[in-house]
Design a protein around this nucleic acid. Structure first.
Lengths: 243, 243
DNA sequence: AGACTTTTAAATGTCAGACAAATAAAAATT
DNA sequence: AATTTTTATTTGTCTGACATTTAAAAGTCT
């Protein structure tokens, strides 16, 4: 972890990469304390501000945390699934908005991934997760709900479905795909009738999961995907000619 | 983007979050230039090193890039799918290794996601992607290949399969799941016989994709998953009692 | 006037040294 | 022995300076 050829790019980036490599390779293990900023600046032969910039880079990726005080310092973080969600969601959201990903493309990806979870979820979903889904469907049926709140509840419903698979790796990967859709979904105006249709399909999904009928879950998700894409298409068409 | 309550935690983290929010909300658009470090330090009423630490945090997430010189500065990055891969893979890899995710769990997630791509890939795969897969299978059959090289080729094969779906969102989400498995796969010793079996299954997948037979692709992926998990189980068992 | 060279100014990258604040351990006191 | 005080360590922040890079402005020559 000492390598630092003086030729190329920013020192702070190089130092961050060196420490990052040490973490990935296992040279630095979870909860291990890095040398103090003063020691690091000595070790890498750079000033303390430069070391600090490197450490901030790592902190931004949740690879380390810092603590002030006598026995403080920078410590290697245990990267948790929960903590990785937010970053994953931020990145996914920006990817969609900055690259002008079409609603269809995002929607296709989302439902393809969700359907991948369906068989596992039908097999393993807990009563708790089923109750969460029922509760969200109930919320969706409340009058006076804003479109944003409806979408948020939709996301919560689908996350419960995904979590039902009982596989943290799947939940992590899916979080980005499901949550990143929310800004796109928010562009849709949900009429009373379209909400009714979606709620009905959500209820069918919940019913099928309750009966552990994975075939039915899959079929209903296909229906839901088609309906959602149709809805988005209608909204887009209406915007083109509002008359 | 001016809010900065002086109550709580690190200033550089707060400033980074304020700028991050501005980017996410679209207040700052792609390729737009941020105010100079001097201006930002004035605007936020902090010193330049503090501003710089904030900017380095954002640079670590590829949200901005910096350029030196007269008309240089910090610019909002377009977050590209390609660029997001590496971060996604790094995070996924660390998640698996730091949380002691079992081989079975990771394997299950990976194949569930891949099977989600299979129907789309059967429909849309290009001749080019098929050729890539054939080439990788051929590489896998070469004698004298190290286990690492075999695994790397395996990853390349599966990435071509995923890319065949022609959905960049899917490719992005799947990259993490597929590549993060590599360190786990590398722990397996591939005998000549097991390589033969895997290559045969890979050929079946390629054949099915060539015929656009999504049912066959799915069935073969299930076989491949079962075989892989069995293989890992055997290795684990052999390690427990090496006698 | 036009093409080339030189200068200049603006911006990031880096450094040095200092002080503030938090925190845990050591020392002192009750 | 328990509590309080002191002390040392470490991160967080500030100030000011210099180095380096780069594009545009100014100058120079043909």
């Amino acid at each position: 972890m000492k390598i630092d050829p003086k030729k190329p790019a920013d020192l702070s980036a190089q130092i961050a990469q060196a420490i990052r490599d040490a973490i990935i390779s296992g040279e630095l293990i979870v909860d291990e304390r890095l040398p103090s900023e003063a020691e690091l600046s000595e070790q890498f032969q750079v000033s303390r501000p430069t070391v600090r910039e490197a450490l901030k880079r790592l902190a931004a990726q949740s690879l380390i945390r810092t603590q002030r005080g006598a026995s403080g310092g920078a410590f290697v973080n245990r990267l948790s699934f929960e903590g990785a969600y937010s970053q994953q969601i931020t990145t996914s959201t920006l990817l969609l908005s900055m690259n002008a990903v079409s609603f269809d493309t995002a929607c296709e990806a989302r439902f393809a991934l969700e359907r991948a979870c369906a068989p596992l979820s039908a097999e393993r979903r807990t009563a708790d997760q089923l109750a969460t889904m029922r509760a969200e469907v109930h919320r969706q049926s409340q009058p006076g709900l804003t479109d944003e709140a409806f979408c948020a509840s939709d996301v919560a419903f689908h996350r419960a479905l995904v979590d039902g698979a009982g596989n943290p790796v799947l939940s992590y990967q899916l979080a980005g795909a499901v949550e990143a859709m929310q800004p796109l979904m928010n562009m849709i105006t949900f009429t009373a009738r379209s909400r009714e249709a979606i709620i009905a399909l959500h209820n069918q999904v919940a019913d099928a999961l309750e009966n552990r009928d994975s075939t039915k879950v899959d079929a209903t998700l296909v229906e839901l995907e088609n309906y959602t894409r149709q809805l988005a298409q209608d909204v887009a068409q209406q915007r083109r000619k509002p008359a």
